[in-house]
């Protein structure tokens, strides 16, 4: 089993997730990628329950030698698949060239039994327009 596909069936069982989530067979099911995520790879996701709250640990790796910025947030779900909490604020993560970085997130409520890690990077054209606005005057 490569680290990429180390599915947390055991963990999920421990958490007590039933239904479709338990059948999930890959990290992909726990990740939603928006935009492009070419140079950043999610290496591992672990989840466990501590004091009734779900904790999620996500490990990411920057495959390129350049510094990458990733936007992320966690979507917390109830057992039924309903969203257990409002949309979180987007957070930024800076990954230096070839850096591996671990993120730990904790659920805001004991109602959260499942999760999705939502990742977003700037698309290529997005980066270009950003560079443009940097040179001109910007508020």
């Amino acid at each position: 089993m490569t680290p990429l596909f180390r599915v947390l069936a055991a963990v999920l069982l421990l958490v007590g997730i039933a239904g479709p989530a338990a059948n999930a067979a890959g990290i992909e099911d726990k990740i939603e990628i928006m935009g492009q995520l070419k140079d950043v790879k999610v290496v591992e996701i672990q989840a466990r329950v501590r004091n009734g709250l779900l904790f999620v640990q996500t490990e990411m790796e920057n495959l390129s030698p350049n510094t990458q910025q990733v936007f992320y947030r966690i979507k917390w779900l109830e057992e039924s698949g309903f969203q257990a909490w409002d949309d979180e604020a987007w957070k930024t993560l800076v990954l230096y060239g070839h850096q591996r970085q671990t993120l730990v997130s904790s659920a805001p409520t004991p109602m959260a039994k499942d999760f999705r890690v939502i990742l977003h990077t700037k698309g290529k054209d997005q980066q270009e327009t950003d560079r443009d606005t940097n040179t001109s005057f910007k508020y």
Partner: peptide, 30 residues
């Protein structure tokens, strides 16, 4: 997006408020 990362100026902004509130409340319930 009211939750978008705001980096218009480096004064204290909406993203700072949201991340602080989130980090603090998550930590406190533990």
């Amino acid at each position: 997006d009211s939750k978008a990362v705001e980096t218009l100026t480096n004064e204290f902004g909406s993203t700072d408020l949201q991340t602080i509130a989130e980090a603090m409340s998550r930590s406190m319930v533990q």
